[in-house]
Design a protein around this nucleic acid. Structure first.
Lengths: 333, 333
DNA sequence: CACGCCTGTGAAACCCTTTTCAGGGCAACT
DNA sequence: AGTTGCCCTGAAAAGGGTTTCACAGGCGTG
């Protein structure tokens, strides 16, 4: 592996000059040409580790997601990756498994590796601690979920609005006992979606108590949705529609409904977030589409600005969701 | 950020001694204790960039996959990540998009970053070039797909056997005109699966020509499967079953079948590789289950051995698939 | 002509850790 | 007592870039 000194020797200049040619310093054209030729001839590419050490900044960013198996986060990761790749940043993918301890370990690594920046879909709104990297001067952007503990840039979706629109749609289609399956307390997306759902129902004249009866919190996994849906179906007056505030929970809910013989659209089902290949599900599934890829793109772009040294005031970018009504919410009976 | 010198000063020793305490050199217990206390008090964690520079080895490995949106590769990535994480390795995820040029760029980055190792699901059997990292002493393990150009360790699944079993199953269930949708020539998995399919048919007494009539190659995406299936359905004697050698292509095929009103199991459908939430598809989908997570685990473990300096002869680990017959291959008529 | 300023350049410092090397101290042996 | 050998330790080198600093030379100005 050729080093910068090899190139310098071959071009008859000092290593400092080579560095300047490569990084845009002022060098006379003639020398610059010689350096470039020598570099090409030797197949030189700078050792990024050495560069990182000296500049105290690496060309890698960390992306922390709670569940890489969820297609929402893979789409987001693609958005991040495509954007980062364009400016030569590598993306280190870290799967936190919704585990705050695991998340903390990854954040420590990011600090020890002097990573250029961190993108994080926080495992917990209250317990995720982003102060460490922020204090060390590593830019942090929260994506999808915003933790409360640190002041960072954020890119989120309008969960509340999307949920409100979703539940309003169920109301409009004539459903009366509309349930909500949402994630655990303390996760901002779960809270916001529940809030939107409640707002839509209250506006439609539903009593607060009624809302509460038909709301279930569960772990945001397929099994969580399944268990919660079964609970709801066991009520004296089971719901006639369900707003599932999480895509994987929707899958569990659908399974429970099928087992109980209460298939949509008789019992309406509306999913917040796409299910992959939802087009295969029968009847076709109404969803609130989330701009996952765009979320990743926007967050990566924002992070890059910070890495480049932007000192704009903190920003929160909120992307809109879009309701896509299909057959699973065609109406009861 | 505390450095090793700070710790040394605080403990009244030299930096060399601190390094030895942390990395398992011989140090008297008393000193070691002092060093550990000082390190803890200062919250010291070694700068991994400096360490990388000196040791010429980083603690990151690259994982190159052709399509992170495919659940097969996300499961694989999880296996890799969980295993790597256990020994303190970070995983840099690189999405090559089935593009050899993009793949080459990522390999260059891996070399320039002095990464500890590379795991690669090659974009092409013939054009993927793994000689560069191998020549630089960076261990490489091929996973899922093995390129021909370099001599590397590999972890694959028994595609041929799995495919043969799958098609034999279709034969046994009474299907007569069994089609095969597979990936492009030059991708080892596509080739092997087709070979298994053909072997099963020939064994059942089907003529080679007949096999060829009902075989289609397409890009391994949903649209590829859709287009190829439509072609097959337009034949004078359309197939009465299809073995889809790729999970995403299966989705496309199902869509085409539904449009044509030829739903399974009347027309049998067997997918090589899971479709996420296949349990939601009606009728339930017969699949050849791939051990994606285990593939990632095994590959990461193998790579770690090499990184640790193992000089065993090259190994190829082949994992078995399992046929899971369900309703979509219940039989014709 | 003298002075100051500006530009381009190379030497050397620097980033932080690991590793080599040489030496001191001590025990065991001749 | 004098070697020999071993263990532990610290000083210093090494890893490969970037950046600071000082300096040389050219140019413009008073």
């Amino acid at each position: 592996m050729a080093t910068i000194s090899d190139v310098a020797r071959a071009a008859g200049v000092s290593p400092a000059t080579v560095s300047r040619v490569l990084n845009g310093g002022r060098v006379t054209p003639e020398r610059a040409r010689r350096v470039r030729e020598a570099a090409a001839a030797l197949g030189f590419s700078p050792n990024r580790v050495a560069r990182s050490l000296r500049t105290r900044r690496s060309s890698a960013i960390a992306l922390l997601v709670p569940d890489i198996a969820n297609p929402f986060f893979t789409a987001l990761a693609r958005g991040v990756e495509d954007t980062a790749q364009r400016t030569g940043l590598s993306v280190v993918l870290c799967n936190t498994d919704e585990d705050v301890a695991k998340e903390r370990r990854y954040l420590q690594v990011a600090v020890a590796e002097h990573m250029a920046g961190v993108l994080v879909a926080a495992a917990s709104r209250t317990r995720t601690d982003l102060t460490e990297p922020a204090a060390r001067g590593i830019p942090v952007v929260a994506v999808d979920r915003r933790p409360r503990t640190a002041e960072v840039d954020a890119v989120t979706v309008d969960n509340r609005h999307g949920a409100q629109e979703a539940t309003a749609h169920l109301v409009a289609r004539g459903y009366r006992r509309i349930a909500c399956l949402t994630g655990p307390a303390g996760v901002s997306t779960a809270e916001d979606r529940l809030a939107g759902h409640r707002a839509a129902l209250l506006e439609a004249g539903v009593r607060e108590e009624h809302v509460r009866t038909y709301t279930r919190r569960a772990v945001p996994r397929v099994e969580g949705g399944y268990a919660a849906m079964r609970e709801l179906l066991a009520l004296d007056e089971p719901p006639d529609a369900v707003f599932a505030a999480h895509n994987l929970m929707t899958v569990g809910a659908l399974r429970a409904l099928r087992e109980a013989g209460a298939e949509p659209p008789g019992c309406g089902v509306l999913s917040f977030g796409d299910i992959p290949f939802a087009s295969l599900v029968h009847p076709s599934l109404s969803t609130v589409r989330l701009p996952a890829y765009e979320l990743g793109e926007a967050a990566a772009a924002l992070l890059q600005e910070r890495i480049a040294g932007s000192d704009m005031p903190l920003r929160t970018l909120v992307l809109r969701t879009t309701l896509e009504p299909r057959d699973s919410t065609a109406g009861p009976g």
